[in-house]
Design a protein around this nucleic acid. Structure first.
Length: 587
DNA sequence: AACAGTCGCGCG
DNA sequence: AAAGCGCGCGACTGTT
């Protein structure tokens, strides 16, 4: 059962905000009701308690426009249909001719911008969510419940007419469930010990500097670099200045990149020269590291993103072309390893950090049906599994490191280097897996679109791309066209695997959430929540007494997710779990 | 002064 | 150790 809810367009300025709810039963009669915003959470609670046995999909324009308000009012829903997110999936899917999927959006659903203040209120008052206080000047008319109902209808019809409706509707449900999870993660936040973070900053950078000033330790390093390069007043923050100064000092490097500086040191003709090079490169690299900490996760970041010892990750569900999540503001998905010390559990609480091992190669094994790769994927270390097979068959892929390099090369489309050279041996051992990725690449090189297991479609190249392929009048133009074609091929090659891995992860988290909501410990509902997500890793936070049960839930959900996608297949999806009081200890 | 492009680095 | 894929962000830089 679907219940569509939407705010009614306001006419009078002082009238209380009205919301409409329309019940949708396929083939049945829709019933319509109206509420003030204050009544809405109670209505939702009531409907859910009256219909415990059936799934109610709360349907709205976009989860992040509606759900935060409900969470603030203490209501969380089991399931939803996010029209915006599903619309985006269907729109792209309909651009691929082979899908033969007709879909015309009934309404334009614009993702609302974050409110201008963008910081979470330090003490969000129930019913006073800032999302609803920002006037929508740019987008004055949000769709009515009736319009959303039409859109839902169009989406459900499109899904039903798709080549694999079961898979696509699973994707719609998983994506929507992901939106609920993302909103909840932002609502609850993850524990972030501000004083741990601050003392780390003080220890590495010195005391907090005045605005627009360099911290003491950075200033000291800048002086050392300046002196050793013989470049007074050098500003190491500017790659251009730094590069010039390095070249003036006789360093034969083409950029200031870390790996290039390191390889320059490696190439020293003798030990004495090596020491000389290290003497200048070491402070430069140290400066870069600390500079990064200062600008990306320093005091300003703490001020902006951490309140009441909580960090509120701002996720964007499915914003990567492959369906992976992105993060907007706060860098939720780029928390450096060094900074994770600040993620500290409070008394009696535990972090459960779960990492799914080598998801993408396992997805490749499942999608391609490659039996040898499925055998390698048994157990917890797929790369070791490959090396074992390599050893037994006298292949050069007999070491774990070679196996890992060639595996990534096969999925990313490597052509040169160690990885490229080993690919023929990979093909010999895992012909079906290799064929699968090469087929995906070939489609991309022609300008075609590929799909994930559940039916997310890759975007087509733009018209400029096709023009470049068509207008190959010179050798130079032909070379350029080939380069672009190969690049598109690498994209589609990776898309199917990365995109399906993202679907697996959505199902994994969705299953975890479902069980956290429904299971009980000694008769009490669980207090543990999902608080963080990073592509193939999730973090749960809750009372210590619940960790045993939650560990089992996380592990079993990984296998459930695999079965939701692929049915009964002989590919394992093992998860490594660390229960800890500190995120930095998890890896 | 505002904007887009590039660099370099953080994460998977 | 990068390479081969997917991202976001902050700072600098050149252009308008």
């Amino acid at each position: 059962m679907y219940i569509v809810i939407a705010p009614r367009p306001a006419h009078g300025t002082n009238a209380p905000e009205q919301w409409d709810a329309i019940t949708y039963v396929p083939g049945g009669q829709g019933t319509e009701r109206s509420f003030t915003r204050e009544q809405l959470p109670e209505f939702i609670k009531l409907v859910m308690s009256k219909n415990r046995s059936q799934i109610i999909r709360w349907t709205w324009d976009h989860t992040k426009n509606v759900y935060p308000m409900l969470l603030d009012a203490g209501v969380s829903v089991a399931s939803c249909h996010d029209l915006f997110l599903v619309q985006r999936i269907l729109r792209t899917a309909a651009t691929r001719a082979q899908n033969k999927l007709s879909y015309t959006p009934q309404v334009v659903l614009a993702a609302s911008e974050e409110p201008a203040g963008h910081l979470l209120p330090s003490a969000p008052a129930p019913g006073q969510d800032s999302l609803f206080e920002t006037p929508d000047e740019n987008n004055d008319q949000s769709p009515t419940a009736r319009e959303l109902m039409d859109e839902l209808h169009a989406q459900l019809q499109a899904i039903a007419s798709a080549p694999a409706p079961g898979r696509l509707s699973l994707l719609a449900a998983a994506e929507s469930q992901g939106a609920l999870i993302a909103a909840e993660m932002k609502h609850w936040g993850m524990p972030w010990n501000k004083s741990v973070h601050e003392s780390m900053l003080a220890q590495k950078l010195g005391p907090r500097p005045a605005a627009y000033e360099r911290p003491y330790e950075l200033q000291k390093l800048a002086a050392v670099i300046s002196q050793r390069l013989g470049a007074p007043n050098l500003n190491p923050d500017s790659p251009a200045h730094l590069l010039k100064a390095m070249q003036n000092a006789g360093m034969r490097v083409g950029s200031t990149r870390k790996w290039e500086l390191l390889s320059w040191v490696e190439q020293a003709p003798h030990q004495e020269e090596r020491y000389r090079r290290e003497e200048i490169v070491t402070p430069i690299l140290e400066y870069k590291k600390l500079y990064r900490l200062f600008t990306a996760n320093g005091w300003a970041w703490l001020d902006a993103w951490v309140h009441n010892d909580r960090f509120y990750p701002a996720y964007e569900v499915g914003t990567a072309a492959t369906g992976r999540w992105g993060a907007h503001g706060g860098g939720a998905m780029q928390i450096p390893k060094d900074v994770r010390h600040a993620v500290q559990a409070e008394d009696g609480m535990r972090l459960i950090v779960a990492d799914a091992a080598q998801v993408e190669p396992r997805i490749l094994a499942a999608m391609s049906g490659d039996r040898a790769l499925a055998i390698a994927a048994r157990g917890t270390d797929l790369y070791a599994g490959i090396a074992e097979i390599g050893e037994r068959t006298g292949s050069p892929l007999a070491s774990r490191s070679a196996a890992k390099i060639v595996m990534l090369g096969a999925m990313y489309g490597a052509t040169t280097g160690d990885s490229g050279k080993l690919l023929p041996h990979f093909r010999k051992l895992f012909p079906q897996a290799m064929q699968f990725t090469e087929d995906a690449a070939a489609i991309g090189e022609r300008g075609g679109q590929v799909i994930t297991h559940l039916g997310r479609t890759s975007p087509a190249p733009d018209t400029a791309w096709f023009e470049t392929q068509r207008d190959v009048f010179t050798a130079e133009a032909e070379r350029r066209a080939k380069t672009l074609a190969r690049s598109q091929g690498r994209f589609t090659r990776n898309f199917v695997v990365q995109g399906t891995a993202a679907e697996w992860a959505l199902c994994w988290m969705g299953q975890i959430r479902k069980r956290l909501r429904s299971e009980k410990l000694f008769g009490f509902p669980l207090k543990t929540h999902l608080v963080y997500f990073l592509h193939d890793e999730v973090m749960l936070y809750g009372p210590e007494r619940e960790t045993k049960l939650c560990e089992r839930i996380v592990k079993e959900s990984a296998e459930t997710a695999a079965r939701m996608l692929f049915g009964e297949i002989p590919v394992d999806f093992p998860v490594s779990i660390v229960v800890t009081d500190n995120y930095a200890k998890a890896k």
